[in-house]
Design a protein around this nucleic acid. Structure first.
Length: 609
DNA sequence: ACGATCACG
DNA sequence: ACGTACGTGATCGTG
């Protein structure tokens, strides 16, 4: 048995590293000690619990004074038994460790998750901001530095240095470092000691601001989303391999054209800009740092294409702009999507993307590795890669204009509430108010953009840029919007005034505190609306599990739920899911649209047969 | 490490 | 008085 000592916030702590079976007596005595809650953490190889080759190497237990670091090659059963004791644990970023022990130690996520606290959740409730936004951040290191010990080591960064000294890299270090390396063991042990101490600080703070119930809800929700991650989403591998080859071919054809105009690398904005200017194109837009802008917004008009890639017939298409656009898009889709899918799949050809239940400043969820919330929607080809399990169909239900409904509810705008109650199309309703009863489709588009612009806090110029509409119409629409929906303007002003003269934050109906940036108080309305829409979807996920429909769910995508069901029951299941999503919020109906897609996700976006 | 870009809601 | 577009994740080039 080896024991290391370390100083944390002025006191000495011990890190025990059992090497033989008889060393575990001390571990059992530690478990039987008086601690109500123990901290837990794991060290493994790689971030993707489900990719082949992932391994668990260490399982750490600790309180504020001591840590026990168990090698899972020797003591997996002891670690599993400790976790199965009916007692609470605290982890930092619990879903990751819960999925790890579910997979490698046979400790069920449902069981352990139900008695797990997560210091990351507590920290998010106290201040969701990243360091770049003026917050502390949600990492164990920065939180420990503020709440536990400013000199607490950055264990991740420290290990990277050790990896290097052993001739290993960040990528190979987690697998290659000897499991008994002193720094590795020390930092593994310190992580649980810091987590335990952090919990002692943050727990009471969350209670003091009255967020115990919200905290409980978020803990429950993130276990449900970890269940979705564990189940995964089935990939059609032969299809993805074909898709990748097609896209790479498309990218190469574009590159060949670009080369003829002297562009060796289509991803180099500098090369593209120079070549276009050499062809006589005038590039006037600049990026924030002063570089010549050659993004999609600049290139599409040069290629005589609209924002949705349709021929405009207003000029001779610039062949270089066209080639660069197509080549970049194809390459991006091949690499970021098709190839990532193939790399990240498990042994059964399923993907298990990481679902961040409580992620953005507004608490919005995120999905990463791979980013399934950001797959192209204008083209079915990428989404077609995801298929239902045998005998099942993909189904989906999305909220109807949920942010507008939330805004109507919170602002208590009578006109907007009445329009929603009468079931009229909100954007058409606005268009009629602005442009009269003979409004066109283009008018509705402007009205829609103004509606979103209002939610986001945008101005006339931005809305023009986004839609290509003329400034006069947009300004008219904005003015008419304010006149039609006076409650919205009043509500936004009230939020901003409160933030200006009180605490610089907004509080959502769920009790969540959202800090505002000093120079962006106008974002207040958007924060409350976006966050509240997220909370509605989160509540729906909890309700769907409570109704026994959780097995059907696959993914949340901001305002919709993707699911699957046996093909014969698909219609009925998605109707039930849709019903569970619906609610009445401050007297406003939050409605959903259920839909059966078919064999793949892409079938909801026009995939054939 | 950071900026530019682009995918989504 | 005016005007501010909101939130993510990922890749690539550049220094």
């Amino acid at each position: 048995m080896r024991t290391l000592t370390h100083t944390v916030a002025g006191s000495t702590v011990g890190i025990h590293f059992p090497e033989r079976r008889e060393d575990l007596d001390g571990f059992r005595a530690f478990l039987a000690g008086g601690d109500k809650v123990l901290a837990f953490d794991t060290e493994g190889i790689g971030l993707d619990v489900y990719t082949p080759g992932h391994r668990l190497r260490l399982a750490q237990f600790g309180n504020s004074r001591e840590a026990w670091v168990l090698r899972t090659d020797l003591f997996a059963e002891e670690a599993a038994a400790a976790l199965r004791q009916p007692r609470p644990f605290v982890m930092h970023n619990a879903p990751f460790d819960l999925l790890t022990v579910d997979r490698h130690l046979g400790v069920r996520l449902e069981d352990l998750g139900a008695r797990t606290f997560d210091t990351r959740v507590l920290a998010h409730l106290l201040d969701p901001r990243a360091p770049q936004e003026g917050g502390i951040g949600l990492g164990l290191k920065p939180l420990s530095a503020v709440y536990v010990d400013p000199d607490a080591p950055d264990t991740q960064e420290g290990l990277t240095a050790v990896f290097r000294s052993l001739g290993l890299t960040k990528a190979t270090g987690w697998a290659g470092i000897p499991v008994d390396n002193e720094t590795y063991v020390r930092y593994a042990g310190l992580d649980v000691i810091l987590t335990h101490r952090l919990f002692r600080e943050l727990g009471p703070m969350v209670r003091d601001i009255g967020l115990d119930r919200l905290s409980k809800f978020e803990h429950h929700l993130q276990v449900l989303l970890a269940i979705l991650q564990r189940k995964g989403f089935r990939l059609d591998v032969p299809y993805v391999e074909r898709l990748k080859a097609d896209l790479l071919g498309e990218a190469e054809r574009g590159r060949a054209v670009a080369r003829r105009y002297g562009v060796e690398n289509v991803n180099s904005t500098a090369q593209v800009a120079a070549a276009l200017e050499a062809m006589g194109e005038k590039l006037t837009e600049r990026t924030a740092s002063g570089a010549t802008k050659v993004d999609k917004g600049v290139l599409l008009p040069l290629a005589d294409l609209s924002l949705s890639w349709e021929r405009l017939d207003v000029r001779t298409p610039n062949p270089l702009a066209d080639a660069v656009l197509r080549s970049k898009r194809a390459e991006k889709w091949a690499v970021a999507y098709a190839d990532a899918f193939l790399t990240l799949r498990d042994a059964n050809d399923r993907l298990h993307p990481s679902i961040g239940a409580l992620q953005a400043r507004t608490a919005r969820m995120s999905i990463s590795r791979p980013p399934l919330q950001q797959l192209p929607s204008s083209d079915w080809r990428v989404r077609r890669a995801f298929v239902a399990d045998p005998g099942q169909s993909i189904i989906a239900a999305d909220y109807q204009a949920v942010e507008m409904r939330v805004l109507a509810a919170l602002s208590d705008d009578e006109t907007m509430k009445r329009a929603i109650a009468e079931g009229v199309d909100l954007h058409s309703f606005t268009a009629e108010r602005v442009f009269g009863p003979d409004f066109t489709k283009a008018h509705r588009k402007i009205a829609k953009a103004v509606g979103f612009g209002k939610v986001y806090g945008g101005g006339a110029a931005t809305i023009c840029r986004q839609t290509g509409a003329d400034l006069v119409s947009v300004k008219r629409a904005l003015a008419a919007y304010d006149a039609t929906f006076p409650g919205i303007k009043r509500y936004s002003r009230r939020l901003m005034e409160r933030a200006e003269f009180g605490r610089r934050e907004v509080v959502t109906p769920s009790g969540r505190h959202l800090p505002l940036d000093r120079d962006r108080l106008y974002a207040a309305t958007n924060y409350v609306v976006q966050s509240t829409a997220r909370d509605l979807l989160a509540q729906a996920i909890v309700d769907i599990f409570a109704a026994g429909l959780g097995d059907h769910l696959l993914l949340p995508v901001h305002d919709e739920l993707i699911a699957q069901a046996p093909t014969a029951d698909a219609e009925e299941v998605i109707r039930e899911v849709g019903r569970a999503m619906e609610s009445t919020f401050y007297g406003v109906r939050i409605a959903s649209d259920p839909e059966v897609y078919g064999p793949s996700w892409g079938h909801g976006y026009g995939a054939p047969e």
